[in-house]
């Protein structure tokens, strides 16, 4: 364990009455050390109003500096720290410990499990290879497509037109939805919910003219028709986007376009 952690001090924290004991059971994997992943328990004294991300920090800074995970903003906007917490995909920085534990007499009844999101290659501990996820995102052309000369002023839009795709503008590309989808787990060729959400954001934007192209892309073998309406994605989305509804709207657009 060469990676340093903070130096330990012997003095007890001044007021520790609000702290509780929680065990974090973390799925560890380091391909440079062992071929297999394993569960490791860390016991923490922590304020239950802290988030899972704070617990991971505490482990990394005070117990085991080799624990590896992604985070940037720590405030639910960069999409770095989607992970499977107690079997459900969430952002570690938006999940309060008190909301996922049952605390009795200052001790959490059950350990909190933390593992990498599924369906993407685990590189180390909680870090996965996001390339296939972003490849699907790129493949739906997530940028404004227009024809003709560029206007000299802002492209105006009525508030009703803006409202049409408001929900899908909120995506932070955390992959919680795509990596909760059982179709994606088994077949990574499927575009996955996140790519469809981001196509939806442009397909239903009145200023955009590439809707036809995007619909054509999602009409393919690995597009929206593979969705089986399990609603895992909607449950997983930390931004509260109605992901399954967005997918259904793309299906409906394809069908009404044809008939």
């Amino acid at each position: 364990m060469a990676t340093p952690t903070l130096e330990k001090t012997d003095e007890a924290p001044a007021d520790a009455g609000h702290l509780v004991t929680v065990t974090f059971r973390i799925r560890r994997f380091n391909p440079e050390e062992a071929p297999d992943a394993f569960w490791e328990d860390f016991e923490l004294r922590i304020d239950p109003k802290e988030r899972v991300l704070d617990a991971l920090h505490q482990i990394k800074w005070e117990q085991d500096g080799t624990l590896t995970f992604r985070r940037s903003c720590a405030h639910g906007i960069c999409g770095s720290d989607a992970m499977r917490i107690n079997g459900k995909n969430r952002l570690a920085c938006k999940t309060l410990i008190k909301d996922i534990t049952d605390i009795k007499d200052g001790v959490a009844a059950k350990p909190v499990t933390v593992e990498a999101i599924k369906g993407l290659t685990v590189l180390k501990d909680l870090v996965v290879d996001m390339d296939p996820f972003f490849q699907a995102y790129r493949d739906v052309m997530p940028f404004l497509i227009t024809s003709g000369n560029e206007p000299t002023r802002e492209r105006l839009q009525s508030s009703a037109d803006r409202e049409r795709f408001d929900d899908t503008t909120k995506c932070i590309l955390c992959a919680a939805c795509t990596s909760s989808c059982p179709v994606f787990w088994n077949d990574g060729q499927y575009f996955g919910p996140a790519a469809i959400v981001n196509a939806h954001r442009f397909i239903f934007d009145s200023r955009d003219e590439g809707g036809e192209q995007r619909l054509e892309i999602l009409n393919d073998r690995d597009g929206v028709w593979r969705c089986r309406t399990t609603f895992n994605c909607t449950d997983a989305c930390p931004r509260g986007i109605e992901v399954t509804k967005a997918i259904q709207e793309v299906k409906r657009a394809l069908i009404t376009r044809r008939f």
Partner: peptide
Amino acid sequence: HPAPVIEPPRARTA
């Protein structure tokens, strides 16, 4: 490295 990285089936690439 000693550990084979386990890739999920049929990953999407360019």
